[in-house]
Design a protein around this nucleic acid. Structure first.
Length: 115
RNA sequence: GAAGUGAACCGGGUGAUCGCUUUCCCUUCUUUAUGGAACGGAAAGAGGAAAGUCCGGGCUCCAUAGAGCAGGAUACUCCGUAACGCGGAGUGAGGGCGACCUUAAGGAAAGUGCAACAGAAAGUACACGGCCUACCUGGGCUCCCUGCCCAGCGGCAAAGGUGAAAUGGUGAGGUAAGAGCUCACCAGUGUUUCUGGUGACAGGAACAGCUUGGUAAACCCUAUCCGGAGCAAGAUCAAAUAGGAAAGUGUUUGAGGGCGGCUCGUCCGAUACUUUCGGGUUGAUUGCUUGAGCCUGUCGGCAACGGCAGGCCUAGAUUGAUGAUCACCGCUCCAGUCUUCUGGAGAACAGGACCCGGCUUACACGUUCACUUCGGUA
RNA sequence: UCCGGAGUGGCGCAAUGGUAGCGCAAUCGGCUGUUAACCGAUGGGUUACAAGUUCGAAUCUUGUCUCCGGAG
């Protein structure tokens, strides 16, 4: 059983960290569901940041989108190149597509980047 | 059985695996130490509206929060409450066959304003069309008086049409014509008074004067209440940058400041303000959850609510913790089978951010109680 | 957390208690060989929603919804 934990040092927490990834990283859209940015960070672990603006919906919908993306990252993080910062911008459909589809789509996009 | 009225409740449950936040315990690492980090274990972990931010408080700072003006809010009565614009019980008015519901419900006899169109007139009432010539003046008819006709000076507000609204209504008397001018009854107003009620008010009696329009969710008046800002309040620690430069203005004869405006008062008080140039930080801890707290019982009260006794401890995040997968049970809908099973779909509104009391709004499947009207049967 | 503003035909805007209007757009007709321009006509509104005050409400009052903006 691989480690599926998701601790605080694995997250992006500051405004400038987000800005660096968004400005300098590479971008890919995932089928109207969300948008993924990535940038190598030179550390020994991956870090994830999630953006869910008010356009996505009410606070219930926004929090649900964040939790689902966090869950996907937790399950697939060992398939990703180890030292990279990732920012995912949630879209309106993120909270409503079935979880298996969401997981496959995000995994594919990150897998393609790793190769 | 149908239609309806008013309250109260619920907001799926159990179990498993992985993961998140906080607290406690143990071990290890690090640190002079407080402390910090990691593995493991245990416990706890969103709502009835957490929402809108519409009111009221607690708490913190500004003076132990002061006076007046301005400004704002409220507006039948009594009670409840920390307080309220909230709640309870009543009163008046309006609606409904009824259960019951609605109600910003002080003052128009302090003043200013407003009322389209229509209408004579929309307010110190007026006189379009009308009615009348008793009194007075002039003219005519008439032999004269009496009398008649016309006009004037005047009198009148009954009938007319308009409008949302036109100065009480009906009847009789009265008169030149009329009029609360007088009378009877009715409606309404004011004063005094009796009875009931804590009170709003209700019921009755006497007298007065006949009558005073609507609008204050128009300005306003009256009464009561309100100091300001808000946990990004406030407090502590650490780091970094700077204790900058130039010009102008004011000042111990008091500058300037004390978180909405003005005046006063009071406190602090030696540097303050404006413009231009240049530079830098926005971390950690605390506030932070024991509170007008929740549950049970009992007593007082119609009730809201309050007193007493016992028990309980129940989120504290900061890119912001509740998710993913699975099994079973329960609910709703659809299809098959066929009278109890199988399969599929679905389960709302919605997420704490200092904390409480209310109000308002959103809400799936449902449950319970009390009452009303109509119909049927006995 | 606190504080403002707006909502009227498809679009942009008027109307400060008294018949809901203007421009563009739309539809129809004319002009032209045809289109545009031009000329003439026509339709289109629960004034965001719900209550209330008033004889009468887009306007006044209260509550709600949606959108936009500001301060720290």
């Amino acid at each position: 059983m691989p480690d599926q934990s998701f601790r605080k040092y694995e997250r992006l927490l500051k405004r400038f960290e987000f800005k660096k990834v968004l400005d300098q990283g590479q971008k890919k859209r995932v089928d109207n569901i969300c948008t993924v940015f990535w940038l190598p960070n030179g550390k020994e672990h991956r870090r994830l940041g999630i953006i869910a603006s008010r356009k996505v919906g009410s606070s219930v919908v926004r929090n649900k989108a964040k939790r689902r993306i966090r869950e996907v990252f937790r399950q697939i993080k060992h398939q990703i190149y180890p030292s990279v910062d990732i920012v995912i911008i949630a879209g309106k459909k993120t909270s409503f597509v079935p979880f298996a589809i969401l997981k496959n789509k995000i995994a594919q996009s990150l897998w393609a980047q790793a190769v």
